[in-house]
Design a protein around this nucleic acid. Structure first.
Length: 502
RNA sequence: GUCCCCAUCGUCUAGUCUGGCCCAGGACACCGGCCUUUCAAGCCGGCGACGCGGGUUCAAAUCCCGCUGGGGACGCCA
């Protein structure tokens, strides 16, 4: 049997370092066993999936040096490799499950489900579908479907018994079916959820080993059940420990830069990033810190994975990156890499409209646009001082602005402008006042290129990192204080929403 | 709240499966020294961990149990 693994990212945002991390392990396992590594796009969430995100993810994975044998761009014998192009297959399989009595149509409204959930939580019970549509009369179901009534398809769960999940890295995991919800398999828009699409595709694409994040352990019983319902052999499962924030929570963009684009922009080398990801939860037999993909392949062994969730430590990544710059690049390569990084036509061209009106000689460039090339600007509390706002107020501006920006689905100047204007409204400040500290946080200067465009060009993670940095410069915020800010922020948002309604 | 996973220096980890070579080794960070016109880099040194409590054993970081702690899941997101 040829080993086949896959990485199945969802194109709903910036390319995530966690995706590259999981991809790396899947890649190594496939290659070390002479198998294939597949890339599949899981874009069944119509509302959030975008083509731009998909392109960015593919480019980012290539950038770090991973190649796939089959995928949406390179094709392959098991395509299409984009789930949005496989709808018929999922519909067909959902029907099979219904016909065999393993799934049922559910007409419950989102409102009713929300109420049920609320009541269950209030009663300290585990939120779960209550099974109302489980016993619906077949004729009634047929009538309602014919009438075009919106509905979903849910999978049935055994009323008793225990599922044993065999994981390549752990002892067998026992999960009672009583713990498993009657998962929606087909949404009311007719598209499958992850659970259905994933199982159907992994089977049809001949995936033999599923290596994915630990967060999936609790839904493994659903997947195993589905394989059983279809009469298929389940692939071997292997749940990798999750990358963590310094506070040990699951790595998230709210607390940390998670986008590969950020590390690219900051000037990390792809080989250093990949090397560092290979040091997450894994080690070389001789514990070398610096190794390339070929060397990793030579020594790859699943048993060398350690299960404690590793904290993604930018300091150590930085040190490793420094070694690559010092040890691996001759002068020519050095120049090439810097040019590739930001000193190229494309990167500079993006700045021209912002920079042109503000310089009178080339040597002004560093003062005016130097901060675009920086990591964190060097700033002090004095720099952030505001003539009309107390330091605490400045901090509030910075924190609320972060939340406003985090909520943005897409990162463009218009959205940024709306978010910042919105922030001023929430803060009940003049835009001019709320923007002042942001200029300093973002550019390191009291005035700079137009803020909305500047933030758009800098990108999500770099901009948010600079705002966080400014907050730290002002002494940071305690958890308690953060809670207070959050409460006030939410309250202001509710008030604004209420006003908008009346 | 329910279920599940995990547990070695602040952080990444070796050692754990196959108890003794471990009063626990390496790396990042931090501190000090050397080198050096400076700063880095480099080199040398220092700080620093087997979460706790019970077992099993001649012997436990390693095996078993309990506790504690951390994390994850509980969406018509993936």
């Amino acid at each position: 049997m040829t080993v086949r693994t896959r990485i199945a990212p969802s194109p709903t945002g910036d390319p995530h370092v966690g995706t590259a991390y999981v991809a790396l392990f899947n890649y190594c396992f496939a290659k070390v066993n002479g198998g294939q590594f597949v890339l599949r796009i899981e874009d069944t969430d119509q509302a959030r999936s975008t083509r731009e995100s998909e392109d960015a993810i593919l480019a980012a994975l290539r950038w770090v040096g991973l190649e796939w044998d089959e995928g949406p761009d390179v094709g392959g014998p098991h395509g299409p490799y984009r789930q949005s192009e496989r709808s018929a297959l999922y519909r067909e399989h959902a029907q099979i499950l219904i016909d065999r009595g393993h799934a049922f149509r559910c007409f419950c409204t989102a409102e009713r489900l929300a109420e049920v959930r609320k009541a269950q939580i209030a009663a300290k019970a585990t939120p779960r579908y209550d099974g109302r549509c489980l016993g619906l009369d077949p004729d009634e179901v047929a009538r309602r479907v014919a009438a075009g009534e919106t509905h979903v398809v849910r999978m049935k769960i055994p009323s008793e018994g225990t599922c044993v999940v065999r994981d390549r890295l752990r002892d067998p995991i026992h999960i009672d079916y009583a713990q498993v919800d009657m998962q929606v398999l087909v949404k009311s828009d007719g598209l499958p959820t992850y659970h259905l699409a994933n199982v159907v595709d992994d089977h049809h694409m001949g995936i033999t080993h599923v290596m994915r994040g630990e967060e999936w352990i609790s839904s493994a019983p659903k997947h195993l059940l589905l394989y059983g319902y279809f009469g298929w052999d389940a692939p071997e499962l292997c749940h990798l420990p999750l990358l963590r924030n310094p506070d040990k929570s699951k790595l998230s963009k709210r607390k940390n830069p998670t986008s590969i684009l950020y590390y690219q922009r900051m000037g990390f080398l792809p080989e250093a990033l990949l090397n560092y990801l290979g040091r997450m939860a894994w080690s070389m037999p001789d514990e070398s810190e610096k190794f390339d993909l070929t060397q990793m392949l030579e020594h790859f062994d699943l048993d060398r994975i350690s299960l404690g969730g590793p904290v993604f430590d930018v300091d150590k990544l930085t040190w490793l990156n420094g070694r690559y710059i010092r040890e691996d690049l001759d002068d020519d390569a050095f120049v090439d890499r810097v040019v590739q990084w930001q000193l190229n036509r494309e990167a500079l061209a993006a700045l021209i409209p912002l920079v042109r009106p503000r310089i009178s000689k080339w040597s002004d460039l560093v003062d005016v646009a130097g901060f675009f090339l920086q990591g964190m600007p060097t700033i002090t509390p004095d720099d952030l001082a505001h003539k009309r706002l107390e330091p605490a107020e400045v901090q509030r501006v910075l924190v609320w602005t972060q939340w406003q920006l985090e909520a943005l689905p897409a990162w463009q100047a218009e959205g940024v402008e709306a978010a910042l204007r919105g922030a001023a409204g929430l803060l009940e400040m003049k835009l001019r006042d709320s923007l002042a500290p942001l200029f300093v946080a973002i550019s390191g200067q009291k005035s700079s290129t137009p803020l909305f465009d500047t933030i758009a060009i800098l990108g999500r993670d770099l901009s948010l990192a600079r705002l966080r940095h400014a907050v730290e410069v002002l002494g940071g915020v305690s958890k308690k204080q953060l809670g207070r800010y959050k409460k006030a922020y939410d309250q202001a948002r509710r008030a604004q929403a209420a006003e908008a309604q009346s």
